[in-house]
């Protein structure tokens, strides 16, 4: 099954990126801009191997895009994702009863590419996720961190324009490859101009 999903993902990305750019906007003005975007939303997940615990939580992100007014824009994004929370009380183990609490969160740092189709914008990103795990059991707290590859694809629709600022709804997917985990985020996004020349 994993093989099929993987191949399907390859095909979808290939077809999307090789066709959509043909229809993307290319602004005719000569302004170069740096825009900033703030987003906040709700995350849920799809995983290849079902795990216990709550795979839902708040997410937020900051994105800074360089818009050279060509079809493809480039930027940087930093997210905060709460991936999973498990809270179990009075678990019976061979070492006695214990409460078990575990939270896993991630901070993806991504290189982001963007194409615009009128009010619709497509983003893809590649980078790494700084993962943080905090686990408590047997009255011990264990904190661990590691770094995984991360890719992101999202679609944003502008619902309101205020001069050079935009209010949008964005559906975003973060894929943390090593964990075979795909997080789907539903976000409200506010985009504003930082600098123009």
């Amino acid at each position: 099954m994993n093989i099929i999903l993987n191949r399907m993902l390859h095909v979808i990305i290939f077809v999307l990126l090789n066709t959509l750019h043909l229809y993307s906007n290319e602004n005719k003005d000569n302004d170069f801009r740096i825009n900033s975007e703030l987003g906040i939303g709700y995350s849920t997940g799809i995983e290849l191997h079902k795990q216990e615990g709550n795979l839902k939580g708040l997410t937020s992100y900051l994105r800074v895009m360089w818009k050279p007014q060509h079809r493809l824009n480039l930027g940087l994004e930093i997210d905060y994702l709460k991936i999973r929370e498990i809270d179990k009380k009075n678990v019976n183990t061979e070492f006695g009863k214990t409460d078990f609490n575990s939270t896993l969160s991630a901070i993806p740092i991504l290189l982001v590419f963007n194409m615009e189709f009128n009010n619709l914008q497509i983003y893809t990103g590649v980078g790494v996720s700084y993962m943080m795990s905090e686990l408590t059991a047997y009255n011990q707290k264990i904190i661990n961190t590691n770094i995984n590859y991360n890719l992101m694809i999202s679609g944003k629709y502008i619902i309101k324009k205020f001069n050079e600022n935009n209010l949008s709804l964005e559906v975003k997917s973060n894929i943390i490859t090593k964990l075979d985990l795909m997080l789907i985020n539903f976000n409200i996004n506010y985009e504003f101009n930082l600098y123009k020349w």
Binding site: M1, N2, N6, I13, Y149, L151, I175, T177, K178, D180
Partner: peptide, 12 residues
């Protein structure tokens, strides 16, 4: 993107 999606586990 191709390289990164190849990082998925492929074991059935």
């Amino acid at each position: 993107l191709f390289v990164l999606t190849s990082c998925f586990s492929e074991l059935d």
